[in-house]
């Protein structure tokens, strides 16, 4: 393998990681865009989603990598896991908003944000209690199909990640720009009081943002399991922080920004890891977070502060 092949391979890996981070970053950014809340529970919802998807895959008879499916059964099983997981995590997000966060909506300061941290601990420890601290071998029915791109290899799992992420993000864009509720979401993010004066039910818009964001986090959880083949109760922390960095890098509150930021963070992780050293990955990513916050707090695609007021 030549150096350029290695680099190409890392780009392929990076785009896959990035697609997952982007799905996760969208949840942060949608909620922030509407109620200016950094929702740290999102980390745990993603992790819970990974376990829910695992439960679905186990329930249909898979275990570890021993059962390999192809063709229609494969598509059906993955689709089932994806849909069930997204509905479940979406509902979890709605329950969290409705019970724990809505009562704090108009409380000034950081009460709501601190609450999301507390909820994240509760969810993480519930999973720890239920499944234990050990790494779980993720049921993975994907056949070992590969394609060659120059000297680099593309696995089926990468193609799967790309397709799922692309379809979901396209769906989200269509929803936001072409449905009434999507427009209400945009309007609320731009001027909540004016949206209310148009008759928009802002509570419903907030619930929608939580449902969609959490559903996408569930999808990212399934992708994580299929990509790495192992999960444990702590996966939310690292992936969540990277996705949060992606949301800030793209411009928090900005939906295309979260997609771009996710992709960039994925690429930085894999290409940066290759060029420098994997153990420096977190240093690189979080240095970027610091630099963005210092020099361009509105992110790459974020609007300037003056425009926002």
């Amino acid at each position: 393998m030549t150096f350029s092949d290695v680099l190409l391979q890392q780009v392929i890996n990076g785009v896959s990681l990035g697609a997952m981070y982007a799905l996760l970053a969208l949840g942060f950014t949608m909620v922030y865009g509407i109620i200016e809340l950094i929702n740290f529970t999102h980390f745990s919802v993603f992790m819970v989603g990974s376990f829910i998807a695992m439960a679905v895959l186990l329930a249909v008879g898979l275990s570890g990598q021993s059962v390999i499916l192809t063709g229609l059964p494969l598509v059906a099983v993955l689709l089932l896991a994806l849909v069930v997981t997204m509905l479940a995590t979406g509902t979890l997000g709605v329950v969290i908003e409705r019970t724990a966060l809505r009562p704090l909506r108009n409380v000034p300061g950081t009460a709501a944000m601190i609450t999301t941290i507390g909820l994240a601990y509760i969810l993480t420890n519930l999973v720890l209690l239920l499944v234990g601290a050990q790494q779980e071998n993720y049921p993975n029915p994907l056949p070992n199909l590969t394609w060659h791109l120059g000297g680099a290899t593309v696995h089926l799992r990468e193609v799967l990640v790309w397709v799922v992420a692309a379809v979901l993000m396209l769906g989200l864009q269509l929803f936001v720009h072409h449905t009434k509720l999507g427009k209400a979401m945009q309007a609320t993010a731009q001027d909540a009081e004016a949206a209310r004066m148009m008759g928009v039910d802002v509570d419903r818009v907030v619930l929608t943002a939580f449902f969609l964001g959490s559903a996408l986090a569930g999808a990212a959880g399934l992708i994580f399991g299929l990509y790495y083949n192992v999960v444990d109760f702590q996966i939310g922390y690292t992936a969540g922080l990277r996705a949060f960095t992606a949301a800030v890098l793209g411009g928090i509150g900005n939906i295309p920004g979260a997609m771009l930021g996710g992709l960039l963070i994925g690429l930085i992780e894999s290409v940066g890891g290759q060029l420098i050293a994997v153990r420096w990955t977190d240093v690189i990513i979080f240095s970027i977070l610091v630099l963005v916050l210092v020099f361009r707090p509105t992110g790459l695609l974020g609007r300037s502060l003056a425009q926002r007021s």
Binding site: K180, K183, A184, Q186, A187, Q190, D191, E193, A194, A195, M197, M198, G199, V200, R303, Q307
Partner: peptide, 24 residues
């Protein structure tokens, strides 16, 4: 309402703003 300082949705198009008026 025609609120004070207009309060349009600045990053939506004029058409989208008009249609927000018919939201209900």
């Amino acid at each position: 309402p025609v609120p004070e300082a207009r309060r349009l949705f600045p990053r939506m198009t004029v058409y989208e703003n008009l249609m927000m008026g018919a939201y209900t």
